[in-house]
Design a protein around this nucleic acid. Structure first.
Length: 196
DNA sequence: CGCCAGATTGACT
DNA sequence: GTCAATCTGGCGG
């Protein structure tokens, strides 16, 4: 792709969360940590909406809802079950939404990730929302930070295009009450997709 | 402040 | 496959 290697601009995220989720597959999540580029290809995502979405934390109000209603392209980081989960705020103007990044295929800085995660098997490095934040050293301090600039050491850049035939759509993982529409997307047969 | 559910993980049968 | 440790944020007192 022509744009490969460039940071994805803010306007990319000003769309319906499911559409943004689809377009995020194949792009690169990059973390600059200790002068080392740690990155991975996004291979699994989930779309979340506002008050109409029973699985969304935004439907319960509070700080998270505010961030999800705020500026697109910013990180939304919050804790569940002792893990930090990384989302990108994404929605149409006046709406509420975000995309959860659930799994990466490790690309650069793999040794650094291994150090951060202390695992033997490379397949468990970044195959889960809590795992990838540990591997890339992402925590609450990134909450609200823009991901459309390199300024904060965490951003998303153009990677590769993934054909429609390679994309699987399913219901979201770990939610009590899901929407009728499946909101989870992942790359078919990719070994780094989290366990269903 | 205490309570508790939850967009999870890793260890174990 | 099962199961409990984990800890933040929302909410009630």
């Amino acid at each position: 792709m022509v744009m490969k290697g460039r940071v994805i601009p803010r306007d990319f995220y000003r769309k319906d969360p499911l559409l943004v989720a689809r377009r995020l597959l194949g792009q690169l999540l990059v973390r600059l940590w200790k002068d080392v580029r740690i990155s991975g290809i996004i291979v699994e995502v989930e779309a979340y909406y506002g008050s109409e979405d029973p699985a969304s934390r935004a439907s319960r109000g509070g700080t998270l809802a505010k961030v999800m209603a705020g500026e697109c392209g910013r990180a939304l980081v919050y804790g569940v079950h002792g893990q930090w989960l990384l989302n990108v705020v994404a929605h149409e103007p006046g709406e509420v939404g975000a995309v959860l990044i659930r799994a990466l295929e490790p690309l650069e800085g793999i040794e650094m990730m291994m150090e951060n995660r202390r695992v033997r098997d490379i397949r468990s490095l970044t195959s889960g929302p809590g795992r990838l934040t540990r591997a890339l050293v992402v925590d609450k301090s990134f909450n609200g930070k823009p991901l459309y600039t390199r300024n904060y050491g965490l951003w998303i850049e153009w990677g590769c295009e993934i054909r429609d035939e390679l994309i699987v759509r399913s219901h979201r993982v770990g939610v009590r009450e899901d929407l009728n529409e499946p909101m989870r997307l992942y790359v078919k047969d990719n070994p780094f997709v989290s366990r269903p």
